[in-house]
Amino acid sequence: MIQKTLDVSELPPFSVSNDDPLWWGQMLMGVIEVMLFAIMIAMYFYIRLSVDMWPLPGDQLPHKLLPTLALVPLALSFPAAWVASEGAKQDNRGKMLAGLGLNLALAGAFLAMRIVEWHSFNFEWKADIFGSVTWTILGLHTADIIGDMGFTLVLFVIVLTGKYAQKQRLGVHVDSIVWYLVAGAWFPMYVVIYWGPTLVGAPR
């Protein structure tokens, strides 16, 4: 019997693009995170609707100035991540370093502003449900930001030392995807935490 064959030896042994299964892996990890935040936001509204006053008596609404300013570095980090990912696809070390480095700096600025802002809160998570839900959303998101910054830092070091090839480039590419999701998730949460109470939360 003659065996029929389909030859794939001409196909490349890697692809630094969205074709790689890792794209799906990272995308889904991001979806899991986003789902977590979506549930937290749903909880926020559920709790909001079950009490008469929001925030609860004694709690001050968080100030809007610093978190709003912090959106600027966060928004700028998107193009930075994009540069890194394009650099990875084109195997351009300079672009990767610039993108990753800029992303780290901007994320760091965002994080610093957030931590400064925390000192202005007049409520703890132990105070009441308003404190608990606000701090938990912020804490979870901060953990994500720090986690992804760690990942970015490691990639930055790898690219800096030149110890990289296709797999690490793919890592840089998908790192940007995670960043879009983690950073992007902040915008709706920002609206909920800082504007929600003013827009829909006038004492009933």
Partner: peptide
Amino acid sequence: THFVNPAAGG
């Protein structure tokens, strides 16, 4: 925290 504590709004 007070997620399930009705005394503090949970």
